[in-house]
Design a protein around this nucleic acid. Sequence first.
DNA 1: AAGTTGACTTGAGTGGAAGCTA
DNA 2: TAGCTTCCACTCAAGTCAACTT
Length: 904
Amino acid sequence: MTVEAFAKTNLMEDIDDDDDMPLVFKRSGTTSKQNQSNSSSHNQDGRSGRQVPDVRSPNGQSSSTHKVKTTASSKASPAVSPLTSPKASPLSSRTSPAPNSRTSPAPNSRPSSSAGNQAKNVNQQSNIAPKESKQVEPKSEPNDEAEDSEDDKPLSARVPSGLSKSNSSHANKVLGASTSVQKSRPAKKEDSDDEIPLASSFQMKSNAGASTSKFSSSEEVKPKIRQNGLPSATVLSKRPPGEVKSAAQASVKKPRHSDASTPVSSKQPSVKTEKKTEDDDDDVPLSQRIKKAVTSASKVSSVKKATKVVSSSMKKTKKKLKKPKYSKSSKLQPSSGDGQKWTTLEHNGVIFPPPYKPHGVKMLYKGKPVDLTPEQEEVATMYAVMLDTEYLTKQQFKENFMNDWRKILGKNHVIQKLEECDFTPIYEWHQSEKEKKKQMSSEEKKTLREEKLKQEEKYMWAIVDGVKEKVGNFRVEPPGLFRGRGEHPKMGKLKRRIRPNDITINIGKGVPVPECPIPGQRWKEVRHDNTVTWLAFWNDPINPREFKYVFLAASSSLKGQSDKEKYEKARRLKDYIEGIRSAYTKDFTSKDPVKRQIAVATYLIDKLALRAGNEKRHGMMQRLRKCSKLYFNAMQDDDEADTVGCCTLKVENVEPVPPNILKFDFLGKDSIRYQNEVAVYEPVFKAIQQFRSGKKGGDDLFDKLDTSKLNAHLKELMPGLTAKVFRTYNASFTLEQQLTKLTQGGELADKVAVYNVANKEVAIICNHQRTVSKSHSVQISRLNEKIDELKAVLEEFKVDLARAKKGKPLVNGADGKAKRNLTPEALQKKIDQTNVKIDNIERQIETKEELKTVALGTSKINYLDPRITVAWCKRHEVPIEKMFNKSLLAKFAWAMDVEPSFTF
DNA sequence: AAGTTGACTTGAGTGGAAGCTA
DNA sequence: TAGCTTCCACTCAAGTCAACTT
């Protein structure tokens, strides 16, 4: 449903203006993420969600006020955090309250009895730490020692949670301090596994799209054009190996826009006409946004010895050698180092959603049918189809919707109040349309699909440097109502239709500019900027300062290249991590408050895998906040949801509980709640207390810090280092470590299970959550019923067995029929089999429960170096297809040739 | 039919660097 | 000219829906 005609500029402008209108002063959300599922009502009811004991919002408000959220919050629940959830780490023995190891104490939420000990240890360490913290240089041979030293371990690993007291020696190592401590470890070679020449065993399916390790010949290559995921031998890839730029180079920023823009229309070329009025908080001197660092121990699992790392130097060497030759397979030849991303670029632009087709179904106003113009009907329909979502329980959504709809209805329209509207006729019409679609025969469906494909085919591909690559999102977003996450102040606003005139195209010089698919209209602008990778963009109608880009798909070599660089950078961090940890450990007690905050923030980012926590834009509001605490408290609503990351943590988000526990509770990205309780070293604990002192709940914990300062500091420690690198590093490190620790051979299924456990550990660390599926409880009860049935059967077998042993005939079955007499041995066998079945179902239930709120996919797609997985598969003879689906195989084509001995 | 998976959608972050201002 | 502000580009993220599997 789109309103083709409506929404003209006026409308838009009006809408935009609204944004600036007075907002409702409410403090949003504390709730956890809300789900936007359309099933709203159901969801809520049935879901138990994560059991979070305390539903308090980060702000400290009671969640009760947000009923909606509560439900939504199912995800939010705390259970997620490893610490909190007891089961969280089955793998790691977090349970034991070990006296801390260098990292923080056990991540358990419950302050372990050992806390005291931990604290002491911490102290000790802290003393130690300073000494070596001086410089953070990569050790020449990082690999060797690094492996051992816990410093290298990612949060999870480092934490001693599982350590027993006997490990106290470890405990003594403080973060960072460890350097001195154990480095003796000889460089280890990978374990035997590495040597296993499994490469052979590991074959990818040719169909996997792209990249199989052995490149299947790609079928369809057009003359000279190599297709992206499918490396074809024939290709002429334009990126010669020689061009490969080092990661460092890659990071070099390119000059801003190329000048080559060609305004198609009379308008000015540049898109950036609009200025933001807001600014960041950073600058504000007044306030002390105190941002305090919160320390928490991450949910560390106690995996402490991931010893199998190969020396990094070796790895590097290998990599380097390989690159050239792989170029073809992985096609990751990077662009030249000057920021140029491509030399030639051809594509067909974007495809627009079809114009709106009025359905004529009349909604009711005060019980009577109302006539609406197609434009009005379109917007009404957008709302009607959301009737069964949670959004409609939100006042903000309804208000925003009504404000925008009213502009289309006009001042004097009969419809004045949303409460008097009854959209059900349209809702029902929509449901029946959906039903019809569902009922179509598979033939019809297939035909439809093919038609759509035919229509879209030309937009699906781009030719980059002579290689055919898939385009990611070539469909322009259709109009609709904005579905912001969490308590987004703009939810419900009309997202108007995007027209060619909104779109800037980026394409190579000298190739045909895509024809504008809508007759009579034209592109806003055409550029030829080879320093960027986007093919097109338009301004977000909800937030005109923001952009929506059309990029190549994840399987493209351009994306693969940057993905690889991301992991290489994270890998490089391994060589520096020990020094970095020493340095920040030393600074926990620095006299310079800025240093102290940087140290604590870095610690949290490292330990807990927190995000950096950029300032939100729209500085005006923030400036206001700084100027007036009162105003600030009342005006929590900005034009973004109220979420935080490390540098933007508020005092109320981190509660220190003596002797050394920090309780975190805040809404992070996507309004996903982060709850965790972590034991930290005493200096960190004290620093947090000090950062909080004299501040109010809504004040910044780290008042002297923002992400740019933090990142500037990190860059001094390692070239290219930024806060987000720690997340990648810790995720990948943890995966590898867990795999090393848990893999023991066995059946394929066992190995797959091991991988999933490791993956889960990472997901927990990263706080990747998902909503509990609507059918979860039903599924569980179904499984429980099965168990009950099996238990009944079991009992019967036992009775039979007893009788059989005594030579008595078996009792008739429940159906009254006589049973076949079996020998005691046979009956015993049946009993055993039944027990196995019960065990399996119980395990299934356990897994389901554990994973009901944990999303494994996100880390797999974004944080886990695929080479770890590929190498592990090769070593353990696990087909890579078990771990990566088709799209991941395509996305990770560049990683498929890795040696089995690869270590992160 | 129920359950699972994966493609797709689009919102929400991060962070570099140009541009502006004191 | 330093430091902030804004622009810009790109990664990360969860939800949805339809297709596939069991």
